[in-house]
Simulated scan of single mutants.
Amino acid sequence: MTPTSRSRPSWQREPCPAWCVVEHDESDLPDDRVHDSAGRSTPAVLGGPLEDEQAATELLILMSRRSGDAVDWVFVGEPERDGHGLSLSRESALHVAHEILRLASGED
Rank of each mutant, 00 (worst) to 15 (best):
residue 98 H to E: 15
residue 21 V to L: 06
residue 34 V to A: 05
residue 3 P to V: 05
residue 29 L to F: 09
residue 92 S to V: 10
residue 59 L to Y: 02
residue 65 R to L: 06
residue 74 V to C: 02
residue 81 R to E: 11
residue 36 D to A: 11
residue 91 E to M: 07
residue 32 D to I: 00
residue 81 R to S: 14
residue 37 S to Q: 12
residue 62 L to I: 01
residue 86 L to M: 09
residue 92 S to M: 12
residue 87 S to D: 11
residue 25 D to E: 06
residue 33 R to Q: 10
residue 70 A to T: 12
residue 87 S to I: 02
residue 100 I to T: 11
residue 41 S to W: 11
residue 66 R to D: 12
residue 83 G to A: 08
residue 65 R to S: 06
residue 61 I to W: 00
residue 50 L to W: 07
residue 96 V to I: 15
residue 97 A to T: 14
residue 35 H to C: 13
residue 80 E to F: 08
residue 27 S to M: 09
residue 11 W to H: 00
residue 38 A to Y: 09
residue 49 P to V: 02
residue 100 I to D: 06
residue 42 T to L: 14
residue 94 L to C: 08
residue 67 S to F: 00
residue 70 A to H: 05
residue 8 R to C: 04
residue 9 P to A: 09
residue 23 E to G: 08
residue 107 E to T: 04
residue 92 S to K: 14
residue 14 E to L: 15
residue 81 R to Q: 14
residue 60 L to Y: 01
residue 37 S to V: 04
residue 69 D to N: 13
residue 7 S to G: 08
residue 62 L to M: 13
residue 31 D to R: 05
residue 47 G to I: 14
residue 72 D to L: 02
residue 89 S to W: 04
residue 59 L to C: 04
residue 89 S to R: 13
residue 59 L to H: 11
residue 51 E to D: 10
residue 22 V to T: 12
residue 88 L to R: 04
residue 40 R to N: 07
residue 67 S to W: 02
residue 54 Q to A: 12
residue 29 L to S: 08
residue 26 E to G: 01
residue 52 D to W: 07
residue 18 A to T: 14
residue 43 P to Q: 08
residue 56 A to D: 04
residue 53 E to V: 12
residue 67 S to R: 03
residue 83 G to Q: 03
residue 54 Q to L: 15
residue 31 D to E: 06
residue 59 L to M: 14
residue 8 R to D: 00
residue 50 L to H: 12
residue 54 Q to R: 11
residue 56 A to L: 14
residue 74 V to K: 01
residue 14 E to Y: 05
residue 38 A to L: 08
residue 1 M to N: 06
residue 53 E to Y: 06
residue 14 E to I: 07
residue 35 H to L: 07
residue 107 E to K: 10
residue 54 Q to T: 14
residue 48 G to L: 12
residue 41 S to M: 11
residue 67 S to N: 13
residue 71 V to K: 03
residue 69 D to F: 10
residue 16 C to H: 02
residue 62 L to R: 15
residue 11 W to P: 05
residue 46 L to S: 05
residue 49 P to Y: 05
residue 78 E to P: 02
residue 71 V to Y: 02
residue 41 S to Q: 03
residue 78 E to K: 08
residue 95 H to R: 15
residue 80 E to T: 15
residue 33 R to M: 02
residue 77 G to R: 01
residue 16 C to Q: 00
residue 60 L to E: 10
residue 36 D to P: 00
residue 41 S to H: 15
residue 67 S to A: 15
